[in-house]
Design a protein around this nucleic acid. Structure first.
Length: 365
DNA sequence: GGCGCATACGTGAGAAACTC
DNA sequence: GAGTTTCTCACGTATGCGCC
């Protein structure tokens, strides 16, 4: 039994918790990792000899973990929106920096860093882990899923509010995997079925989570127009210019553009808050410009992203591209619905001030 | 350098539901 | 019936980091 903070080990010993276990402090993402991403126990000599021997002998090992979850962009939980601190450096652990070349953007997330180390250190381990579901569903984790060889044995998801001190509403999974990192062909499963437990710990049914290639995702349905050299005013609301000072987007127009859209993310979590039409570029990440050629597709994307009610359980479900021809009636319905939706923030205005200049925008919707 | 994904998942007001 | 808690709705930021 290991934990990052020595204080936790001290408390366990003082309170006689898990007396039979060997309890030790260990930094799983930084300790005993060589500069080329290999495991070398002699670097710290913290891992108990018996465990090293069991690993070396290839004994059956069950890894039970509740790793920290943190992606590179989480705000600190106690900070206010807008003044929050961001968790920089998440991808700078020794493990992420040296041993996760094959895992793509999963190196941005702490809990997948743990899984990556286990895959190298104990390649045939059975792993039972708490975590969010994005490593099963999200596009950023496609490369992780291609390289992490695991068979799903079972598990449940529970409302995050069942854990103390968390905000938001999303599922946390406890999933059990039989890994075999040395297998030649075995790849990540395409569907997992979980039991669903609500925040009062009541079983309320089942839910499937799907691993689908991201080229089938709605976010890749249209070719996003390339910006041209015409300057545009970046917006954050109908007539409010963006105020960010770093990584400002939406400063260029595109050939044939009639507006912009904030369309960040491909899941329900983002769709609710990041589906907005503007009369210029969107000043943050996740936007693109709307041209007359793609308007019909934008209307469909807009409608489906806003029509499905977000819940705690469908939080990380992904939107998919249509697989059958769409009727003109459906296309027109989506367009009308978009035009009258409150998230259509297109507008006409003169004398907007940004970058020490005056700007005009024209609402074409 | 630009783009795209992602956030142990933002806030406040008012309504509705619950408790005593 | 009054006080308290939970739910619903309508608004919201901007940045770290991998990849092209």
């Amino acid at each position: 039994m290991s934990t990052l903070d020595q204080a936790d080990v001290d408390v366990m010993k003082a309170t006689k918790t898990c007396v039979a276990a060997t309890r030790f402090q260990y930094d799983y993402l930084n300790d005993d990792i060589t500069d080329d991403g290999k495991i070398d126990y002699s670097l710290t000599n913290k891992v108990p000899q018996a465990l090293r021997q069991a690993i070396a002998e290839g004994k059956k090992i069950l890894v039970l973990i509740n790793p920290p979850y943190a992606a590179a962009t989480n705000r600190g939980n106690t900070a206010n929106v807008g003044n929050a601190e961001y968790k920089s450096g998440v991808a700078k652990t020794k493990l992420a920096a040296t041993a996760m070349i094959d895992y793509g953007k999963a190196s941005n997330e702490l809990f997948t860093q743990f899984l990556a180390r286990i895959a190298q250190e104990i390649p045939k381990a059975t792993i039972a882990t708490f975590s969010t579901l994005k490593y099963v569903t999200a596009p950023n984790f496609e490369k992780f899923r291609q390289n992490w060889k695991a068979e799903y044995l079972g598990g449940f998801v529970v409302h995050n509010k069942a854990f103390d001190g968390l905000t938001g509403k999303f599922p946390i999974g406890f999933l059990i995997w039989k890994t075999d990192q040395k297998a030649v062909n075995k790849i990540f499963t395409t569907e997992i079925v979980t039991e669903v437990i609500d925040k009062d710990a009541k079983a309320i049914g089942e839910k499937s989570f799907f691993n689908i290639p991201k080229n089938q995702f709605l976010s890749e349905w249209i070719t996003r127009p390339k910006p041209n050299n015409v300057e545009a005013i970046p917006l954050k609301n109908a007539v409010s210019p963006a105020t960010v000072t770093k990584d400002l987007r939406g400063k260029k127009w595109a050939d044939g553009a009639i507006g912009g859209i904030d369309c960040a993310g491909n899941d329900l979590q983002h769709a609710e808050q990041h589906t907005v039409i503007f009369s210029s570029g969107y000043g943050s990440a996740g936007g693109f410009l709307i041209t007359d050629k793609i308007l019909w597709q934008v209307a469909i994307i807009f409608a489906v992203r806003r029509l499905i009610i977000p819940t705690w359980l469908n939080d990380c479900d992904q939107y998919l591209q249509p697989t059958e021809p769409l009727s003109d009636k459906f296309k027109n319905d989506c367009l009308i619905w978009m035009l009258f939706n409150r998230q259509n923030r297109s507008a006409s205005a003169n004398d907007l001030e940004w970058d020490n200049r005056k700007w005009s925008i024209v609402g074409l919707f």
